[in-house]
Design a protein around this nucleic acid. Structure first.
Length: 968
RNA sequence: GGGCGCUUAACUCAGCGGUAGAGUGCCAUCUUCACACGGUGGAAGUCAUAGGUUCGAAUCCUAUAGCGCCCACCA
């Protein structure tokens, strides 16, 4: 059946079709190797072709050295672990956990960027024969989701309190059922190759059970405790939040100075504060012990203005003589520093605010006022009493709630905490010892620094949506922490037990995902096979929120875990000792910003919706853009114009395919690729002609470079290499070169052979490109196979690897000469302003007989691609002739009666001459430098000398041309 | 207050010790039977600034300036 393809690539329908196909056919589903009931290697089995999937044989490369090493090309180790002497039934495993998007979320560019990188890595591994698991799921996202539903209620004029806890939670579940799957649906459109059969939600019953198990164990180990401390309190969300959830913002504020009268004297002591309303809860004034100014006041008391309460003057390190007046008001219930000072000095804690940040009854006359109203009144009242003695401008870092932006209030409250130090210690060791590697490298140090300075983690949230804390309080006061609801109190036997109303921080449960998603606390085959996961790809923004917690929990709860040794070894982790870590490697990707480098955010309104971009240019082009810009370390500013360029690339691929099909349909309609599942080189390719030897060699070296780049997450390099190969070499040169062989006038056998080469090379190129552009490659690949593909999807075909035997450096050198000749002729034609249709005769002076032979052999190509009528070989140098060009290997002269704009041409020549002279001067300077001759590598010196010789000829030639031009 | 990153062609970015690169845009030219989302050719950069190290610096070091991030319980 002839292939009829539209002239321009139309991604929309094609991408949608394959996205659905992949899901429906479960292309990305993976059975756990060795699990009861698991179909053995399902991939190959499904097609009935044993070698359909990259096999062990393909991976090990047989007797010959197949994968080029760094010396061969540009360096590095090969990616696939060596399989020598190993059980051939054991395939390497690659497991990756998708950072679960919030159920409330919809896909933004950051997701797409992250998922594109993950998908490239995952598809690459899968194609290289790894048992590949990419595990998807969504996060219940406590605060975010609750907020969302609260807003929905608000629009109906309701409050969650009116509904009550149970009804509200039901409502959230309903919301989740309706909208929660949106982001996963969008992921399908991106082609994310996750195992949809394993999708989870963090509030699933099994995961919730695991959360309770973890909580109880940590409690029993003394690593979870309950206490009354200062926490960050969001008065809008009415919950405690962790330090990480507070975002600081520099604000121009004020520093007020207030006089407190010293009891029994007529002296005053002046304190400074940015939050005057908290003075209502002061329980002391602190001065530094060494501060001479206040020595005489030690042991005295001050009368707290407005409240008329006598409070002591204490000495404490809290007060630093250099700052302000050197005296500090101490409010243990409303400031973390003061809280600590309060504990040191046994001060009472007077809480003057409620959960809404309104003043409570402890605030006396100010009770019932909002904190800012109270502030205003306090200042007014102080001013009236003449006690407000200063008001200074002061910039301060105001803490705001990450979720809702409300100013956070430090608040004394009873919360649950995780004692972090013992967990952090182990996690730090795991990274220090290289059990987990963090890339790019500089993040490792950042992470370690941060881990060395963390505080205990407040894990309770006063929310309704989330994992409820498994603690119950008896009327007798006993607190029971248990996996399941206790019936009676073990202390008093009473049955009036009330469960703690708080829920856990969302990150508490997501920190467990690397093992809970694999079945923990049950001991499962999944866990044996896939834990530790191989890699974690995520953004810097959740390095501490999430990555740190996963490492701490993983190391703690999976302590002593052993990965199946055979699988571990086959997967290339034999050198790692510790199998408790949640992942072996962490790769921190850059952040996507808008075209102006601003962080994308809804409030700024600069969010680029990836689905719009996809709609315009196609998923493949969008993915390629992201991959091509994903240089490790630097943030990327997303720019649509790049995507436009890559849409053109997709179109180019499309049209190259049309060209191929056009020829196949005419010459040999039943032709299929020869590929049978081997990953090395190109199968069924007859490389006897120069262009064939050349493109085959280029393909293999490109494959080597791409693999190399992917190994170190240099996605931009990998995609650019493929781009250059496909467009710059395959399309621009190879296709042009083989056209005569495919022409209708050509010999049928020649045409058939050329067709076979084309098909086989194209097949390899598609496989090479597939991880970056999965849709267009699938479409063309399936069309090439016309239903007879050895596997169900190109995603299951083998990823190309360099075959050393197909690398032909001589062909590359020779081809470069031919190309140089053709380009030279084109240049000269342009200079001489020769009409494109006019064929011209040329003269060539070859430096050596071999060069002449080479050109003779490729005469047809030169004539066709250079617009040449006839080539005449001459003995003498042609360098000095007008309309000629000199190179290291040959001189070429285009014979044509010039019609040149003398003025313009002389300007051009002068400019060229200037450039040459400048380079000569530079070179001579270097060559005249003894230090250079002595210290620079011989290769560099030699190269420079050679270049100087060439330049000299070039200069002479240009000068004579210029002379001739002026004199004529 | 600490820490980090960026500054290369008009634009967006690679390169990170040995002759300045790509894509887009621009100019000229071509509708040649894969592709005008194309072909061919071309113009375009004191690689932020100032010092230093080196035979040699866009690349390493030190300052400076601009931009941007992250961390931080000095009232």
């Amino acid at each position: 059946m002839p292939h009829e393809l539209p002239k321009a690539y139309e991604p929309g329908a094609i991408e949608k079709r394959w996205a659905e196909y992949w899901v429906k056919e479960k292309i990305f589903h993976v059975d756990t190797p060795g699990a009861a009931g698991a179909k053995a290697p399902s991939l190959g089995a499904s097609s009935g072709t044993a070698e359909a999937v990259p096999s062990r044989k393909a991976l090990q490369g047989g007797a010959t050295k197949v994968v080029p090493s760094r010396e061969d090309f540009q360096g590095g180790k090969t990616a696939v672990p060596s399989q020598e002497g190993r059980d051939p039934s054991v395939r390497p495993v690659f497991a990756l956990l998708l950072p679960p998007p919030n159920v409330t979320g919809s896909l933004h560019m950051g997701h797409m960027f992250e998922q594109t990188q993950m998908d490239i890595v995952v598809r690459w591994h899968r194609m290289r024969g790894f048992v590949t698991l990419w595990l998807p799921g969504t996060d219940h996202a406590g605060i975010a989701t609750q907020l969302m539903v609260e807003r929905q209620l608000a629009s109906e004029g309701k409050k969650r309190q009116e509904l009550g806890r149970e009804k509200f939670i039901e409502r959230v579940w309903e919301w989740k059922r309706l909208y929660g799957g949106k982001i996963l649906e969008q992921m399908k459109r991106l082609g994310a190759s996750v195992d949809w059969d394993r999708e989870y939600f963090t509030m699933d019953e099994n995961l919730s059970r695991a959360v309770r198990e973890v909580f109880v164990r940590l409690y029993e180990e003394g690593l979870i405790y309950r206490g009354k401390y200062i926490v960050n309190w969001c008065p809008r969300c009415e919950t405690a939040i962790s330090d990480l959830e507070v975002k600081h913002e520099e604000v121009a504020g004020k520093l007020w100075e207030i006089k407190y009268p010293v009891v029994g004297t007529d002296e005053f002591i002046t304190v400074a504060t940015t939050r005057p309303e908290t003075m209502l809860g002061d329980t002391a004034v602190a001065v530094n012990e060494k501060d001479e100014r206040y020595k005489h006041l030690h042991g005295k008391k001050v009368m707290l203005p407005l409240m008329n309460r006598a409070i002591p003057i204490i000495t404490d390190e809290l007060a630093q003589p250099e700052f302000g007046t050197g005296a500090v008001k101490v409010t243990p219930a409303h400031d973390p520093n003061d809280f600590q000072a309060g504990l040191r000095n046994n001060l009472p804690q007077i809480d003057v605010m409620d959960e809404h940040a309104q003043m409570n009854q402890n605030a006396g006359p100010y009770a019932g006022m909002d904190r800012y109203a109270a502030r205003k009144r306090v200042l007014e009242d102080l001013r009236l009493q003449g006690l407000l003695v200063g008001e200074k401008e002061h910039t301060l870092a105001l803490g705001k709630c990450d979720r809702c932006g409300t100013v956070v209030e430090p608040r004394l409250s009873e919360q649950w905490f995780v004692k972090i130090e013992p967990l952090a210690k182990v996690a730090i060791a795991a990274v220090r010892n290289g059990e987990i590697t963090i890339a790019p490298e500089n993040y490792q140090q950042i992470w370690l620094n941060w881990m060395g300075n963390i505080y205990d983690w407040c894990i309770s949230r006063q929310l309704w949506w989330g994992h409820r804390i498994p603690a119950w309080k008896c009327s007798c006061g006993e607190v029971i922490v248990a996996r399941e609801e206790p019936k009676t109190c073990p202390k008093c036997g009473g049955s009036e037990l009330k469960q703690d109303t708080d829920v856990l921080d969302t990150w508490f449960s997501s920190g467990l995902l690397p093992f809970t998603t694999l079945g923990w606390p049950e001991r499962t085959r999944d866990e044996e096979v896939f834990y530790p996961t191989s890699l974690m790809i995520t953004g810097f923004d959740i390095l501490f929120f999430w990555v740190a917690r996963m490492i701490m929990f993983g190391c703690h709860f999976m302590h002593g875990h052993k990965q199946d040794p055979a699988i571990k070894e086959a997967s290339g982790w034999a050198d790692r000792k510790d199998d408790s870590v949640p992942f072996r490697k962490v790769y921190i990707h850059a952040l996507v910003r808008d075209a102006d480098r601003q962080k994308m955010s809804k409030t700024k309104g600069n969010v680029v919706d990836p689905l719009n971009v996809i709609e315009k240019f196609g998923t493949d082009a969008t993915r390629f853009t992201l991959a091509a810009m994903a240089a490790p370390g630097t943030d990327i500013a997303f720019n649509e114009s790049r995507t436009e360029g890559y849409r053109a690339f997709a179109n180019k691929i499309w049209n190259a395919a049309r060209f191929m099909f056009m020829n196949v349909d005419r010459i040999e309609p039943g032709l299929r690729p020869s590929y049978e599942g081997s990953s090395a080189g190109v199968a069924g390719f007859d490389a006897s002609l120069l262009e064939d030897r050349w493109i085959l060699s280029r393909f293999n070296r490109t494959a080597a470079e791409v693999n190399e780049a992917l190994e170190t997450y240099r996605f931009h390099e990998a995609s650019n290499r493929i781009y250059d190969f496909f467009w710059g070499e395959f399309c621009d040169w190879y296709l042009e070169l083989i056209k005569p062989r495919l022409a209708e006038s050509a010999d049928l056998n020649t045409a058939r052979a050329a067709c076979a080469n084309l098909v086989n090379l194209f097949d390899g190129a598609l496989r090479l490109l597939h991880p970056v552009m999965p849709f267009i490659t699938e479409e063309i690949w399936q069309a090439m196979w016309a239903g007879a593909a050895p596997v169900k999807s190109i995603a299951l075909a083998a990823y190309p690897r360099a075959d050393e035997r197909q690398v032909d450096l001589a062909a590359e050198t020779e081809m470069a000469i031919v190309q140089d000749l053709i380009v030279s002729v084109r240049n000269l034609r342009a200079e001489l302003k020769i009409e494109p249709k006019v064929k011209v005769p040329i003269e060539v002076h070859a430096g050596e007989p071999a060069i002449r032979k080479l050109i003779e052999q490729n005469q047809g190509a030169v004539e066709r691609l250079g617009g040449v009528e006839k080539i005449a070989f001459v003995d003498g140098s042609l360098a000095k002739l007008a309309g000629a060009r000199h190179t290291a290997r040959f001189d070429v002269h285009v014979i044509y009666e010039r019609k040149i704009d003398v003025a313009a041409e002389s300007v051009r020549l002068k400019k060229e001459l200037e450039k040459i002279e400048k380079e000569i001067a530079g070179g001579q300077h270097q060559l005249g430098n003894e230090g250079f001759l002595a210290k620079a590598p011989a290769k560099v010196v030699e190269g420079l000398r050679k270049r100087q010789q060439e330049l000299a000829v070039l200069k002479e030639k240009t000068e004579s041309k210029l002379h001739e031009l002026v004199s004529s």
